[in-house]
């Protein structure tokens, strides 16, 4: 059992990184186009699927940087 010093704050400047994958997918002017195609996929489809990778990267970085030491 550890002491309840888990009361450390969740605040961290790294958390701001989470804003990126929240805002990017909500900007249709970035991806609402057919060209350029990638492997036959119109931009609309491949770029939005690529945003998944952006989301994963950002949440992973924030998790790693804000992990509490054990």
């Amino acid at each position: 059992m550890t002491v309840p010093n888990g009361d450390r704050s969740d605040r961290s400047p790294w958390n701001w990184l989470l804003v990126v994958p929240i805002v990017l997918p909500l900007l249709p002017f970035l991806f609402n186009s057919d060209e350029p195609r990638l492997l036959g996929f119109p931009l609309f489809y491949w770029l939005q699927l690529a945003f998944i990778a952006v989301g994963v990267t950002c949440t992973t970085v924030v998790y790693q940087m804000t992990k509490r030491g054990r």
Binding site: L18, V20, P21, I22, F44, Y45, Q48, F51, G55, T59
Partner: peptide, 15 residues
């Protein structure tokens, strides 16, 4: 295809 941005935005939002 809204299901895709929907399920991207959700995780950083509730993190």
């Amino acid at each position: 295809f809204f299901a895709v941005p929907y399920t991207i935005v959700i995780y950083p939002m509730v993190f």
